[in-house]
Amino acid sequence: MRRIINVKPDPRSLALLGLAPFVGLLGLYVASSAVRLAANPGDKLLPPLSAMASTLSRLALEADARTGQMVFWADTAASLQRLGLAIAASVIIAITVGTILGLVPWAKALGNPLIAAISLIPPLALLPILFIVFGLDELSKVVLIAIGVAPFMIRDLALRIEQMPYELLIKAQTMGASTWQIIVRIVLPQMLPRVIDALRFSIGPAWLFLIAAEAIAATNGLGYRIFLVRRYLAMDVILPYVVWITLLAFAMDFALRLLSARLFPWARISTS
């Protein structure tokens, strides 16, 4: 039947097709940049690719005169450290609280409405409070990211646990398993792959909160640099940084998928 839903692209050109929108966007950028540069050779809004390359090489390969660090790598390390700490904290909180909420009816009755409410609060609106309680240093940034992503992960995990076949828990109990054994031997093995999935969905928001926190008070970091140079419209720094952040986020997502496949091969059997 000739319908658009039945017309499949040639398998050999699949990769090319996926690439086409990227090439198109790049072309759009180059063309727009050329138009603006023709009007003003010093235009900062859409700098040429060559200018971005030379800026990036200065930031990534030369030590900064004032701090003696390579700015690009120092920023990346600082941001990844904050992100890593926050994600580790979120995962630990999510597993602990999520398991309790999902398994213990009393805890569920007590905690569910609270977690649901917290997960709906826009954390950025609370920034001044966070800054005053946790200071303007590293802690407040990590806390902001954790507040941004942990409630979602807790709710997701609690929901998944509730959806587990109840028969499994009954069976384990008839065989004499304690609550602790049920958690360790039944719930966690089934839930850890779900936690990783939830984490993959949270990477985007986590970056958003990281950049927001760094924009407000920091001495280094990817978001710090972007908001610092925004002041004088240095898009030759901002655009490469945005591409780099995208790449890092993509790499994290990819790594988590691999990790999940490696550690929990059984989780894929039912879904695929």
């Binding site: 198109g24 138009v35 009007a39």
Partner: peptide, 28 residues
Amino acid sequence: MHIRLKRLLAYALVAGSIFSLSAAPAAA
């Protein structure tokens, strides 16, 4: 297929440059 892709790209570029004209700075 390749020819079609190329044509598509060409269209995209033309469309892009038309769009980009609107992003040109205010000329004196």
